[in-house]
């Protein structure tokens, strides 16, 4: 493209200063809400990860039930391995959370949203930016965004793990021993809804849409692939909605289990 010679550097009107715009609508509301939404989740997630001990009992499980917080699932370890240095804090979730967080960090919707709300690049459409230099996603570290499909593979595995957790949430302690009595509590329903919402988000992913059929120019010769592509495209149209709902719902499930574990909330049994 370097052979195109047009006097565009600097532009006829110069470059707008940060926040400079002729827009008269409240353009700052959307990035502000996105900023606060992510900040709220990050603060809560850090609180939940660090404070996993509720008076000598784990906060991520409810005694007498099969409930397990999705932030700690799969429960690979309950404590630091023997070789872990005693002076360094150890959080078991470090072993697992990189996958769902990486999936969301590299998600096409989240990228567009946090580039605006957290990096102001741009803070909103047709509004001046704070920085003059710009690399986009062409160089490291943002080349990592191209690994989104790899995080997707892990995210799909997590859907199955959380579905298994929802099944475990239907089993309670009984006369025959721990987790031997089938039942249904409000927490069971809370846990069942979790992989459903995460599935609506994960299976509407742009990378999944590409892998399931978008990479092909001809879909008409593969009716099953075409149907899958159309289904994923339908979910993809609401990707933003499912991204937000599923993210906050994970936080809510952890909060529900935490408060039940602390005895603040009572888990009502339906069956």
């Amino acid at each position: 493209m370097s052979s195109i010679d047009v006097p565009l550097k600097g532009g006829s009107f110069g470059t707008a200063k940060f926040g400079q715009t002729q827009r008269k609508d409240k353009w700052w509301i959307e990035p502000l809400l996105v900023f606060l939404g992510y900040a709220l989740f990050i603060v809560y997630a850090n609180y939940a990860i660090i404070n996993y001990n509720c008076g000598g009992r784990p906060c991520y499980e409810v005694p007498g039930t099969g409930y397990l917080s999705p932030m700690f699932s799969p429960l690979l370890t309950r404590g630091a391995p023997t070789w872990w240095p005693s002076y360094a804090p150890f959080f078991g979730t470090m072993l697992i959370l990189w996958a769902p967080l990486g999936f969301r960090f590299t998600c096409y919707y989240y990228r567009g949203a946090y580039y605006k709300a957290w990096w102001a690049d741009p803070i909103s459409c047709a509004v001046g930016e704070p920085r003059k230099s710009y690399w986009g996603e062409r160089k490291w570290p943002l080349l990592i965004q191209n690994a989104h499909r790899y995080f997707l593979y892990f995210a799909i595995i997590f859907i199955f793990i959380l579905t298994y957790d929802a099944w475990n949430g239907l089993w309670f302690d009984g006369p025959a021993g721990p987790r031997t009595q089938f039942g249904l509590g409000v927490g069971s329903l809370v846990l069942i809804l979790n992989p459903i919402l995460l599935g609506l988000y994960t299976f509407g992913c742009h990378s999944f849409r590409h892998l399931i059929g978008g990479r092909k120019d001809i879909l008409s010769t593969s009716p099953v692939r075409k149907s899958c592509y159309d289904c994923v495209s339908g979910l993809n149209r609401k990707h933003m909605l499912w991204a937000w709902i599923s993210m906050f719902y994970v936080g809510f499930v952890d909060l529900y289990i935490r408060l039940c574990a602390m005895g603040v909330w009572t888990d009502w049994r339906i069956l």
Binding site: G112, Y115, K116, D121, C125, Y134, G136, R138, K139, L143
Partner: peptide
């Protein structure tokens, strides 16, 4: 390499207008 699609950071302003 030439059209530099990597510059796009998916802010969707183009779609909005």
């Amino acid at each position: 390499d030439d059209y530099n699609i990597g510059y796009c950071n998916i802010t969707k302003c183009c779609t909005k207008v």
